[in-house]
Simulated assay, not measured.
Amino acid sequence: MDTRFKLRFIANKKGQLLREALQEWRISKRALTAIKFDGGLLTVNGVERNVRHVLDIGDCVEVTFPPEERSDGLAIENGDLTIVYEDDAILVLDKPAHQSTIPSREHPTNSIANVVCGYFQQQGLASTAHIVTRLDRDTSGLLCIAKHAHIHHLTGLAQRHGQISRQYEAIVHGHVVQDVQSIVAPIGRKETSIIEREVRQDGQYAHTDVTVLKRFYFNNEPMTHIKLRLHTGRTHQIRVHMSYLGYPLIGDELYGGNRQYIGRQALHCVSLDMEHPLTNQTLKFSSLLTEDMQRLLNESSA
């Protein structure tokens, strides 16, 4: 059984080169190179053609992408996945805290990517895990995975054009003064650390919107429940920006919080909105806060 990923298009311009049509259909040059050399196929009305073929209106073009290979460092593992949505193109998951999105030297096994590869193998899918929206190991909530390199290419274009929207909820130390604010502060790697980031003038542009949901006390300590919207996706962006404001996340020891009340940073991706990369249908997903964050809110006092 041929499990290679395939897409069909109908030509709508007379005399157009297949190469030009594929460009309009957002097939990348990298994908075309892989199709040519790594086991893909281009057909027009069922006949194999090259990119110099001249199309006629109504021609049926089928693009067969080559099978994908996992990187050597990505082992196949079996494990649990909380699937929120799935089709032939994307997979949306609800990630628990304390699970890495991709394997690392410190946590080489049981990552979302490892388990997704195992899940794809069970499905007989000739693909690997392409992470569209990544979450830190101790951040919970929604994340999106593309099932194929071409879908990853399309979602990357969507992200660059601000067409994938994520909202988070967090609990931070202190009472945030402003009800609504935008943090625009560049983020870069801290010179003394390979992990830690900081706001710095030579960093990458980073923009976070913050809305206060509730100010409260937990064991007489002031805390604030906030909602955040990311306009950019820098590493540790929310954690760095909130620490920069003087309100580090509860449980985030790396950026000034403490773990007295929760065993990880209190951060959860509650919503993910996007257009489907193939159908352009609007997709909206949501996720409830995890029990550890709910406990802080439920046991709080005004």
Rank of each mutant, 00 (worst) to 15 (best):
D2K: 11
F9M: 01
G15C: 02
L17T: 05
S28P: 05
T33M: 12
A34C: 09
I35S: 01
V44G: 01
G46K: 09
V54I: 15
I57C: 11
V61H: 03
T64K: 07
E77L: 02
N78W: 12
G79A: 08
T82S: 15
V84P: 00
D87E: 00
V92N: 00
L93W: 00
D94A: 12
A97F: 11
R105N: 09
E106W: 01
N110C: 08
G118P: 08
L125Q: 14
R134K: 03
D136F: 01
R137Q: 07
S140K: 10
G141F: 07
H148R: 11
A158K: 04
H161M: 12
G162E: 10
G162H: 15
Q163R: 14
A170N: 00
G174Y: 07
H175P: 05
Q181P: 01
S182K: 08
I183K: 02
I194N: 12
E198L: 13
A206Q: 08
R215D: 14
N219I: 12
T224H: 07
L228D: 02
R234F: 13
R234I: 09
L245I: 07
G246K: 04
L249Y: 03
I250V: 15
Q260V: 11
G263Q: 08
A266K: 07
H268A: 09
H276C: 07
L278W: 03
N280H: 15
Q281M: 12
S286M: 04
S286G: 03
L288M: 11
T290A: 15
L296Q: 04
L297F: 04
E299W: 10
S301I: 15
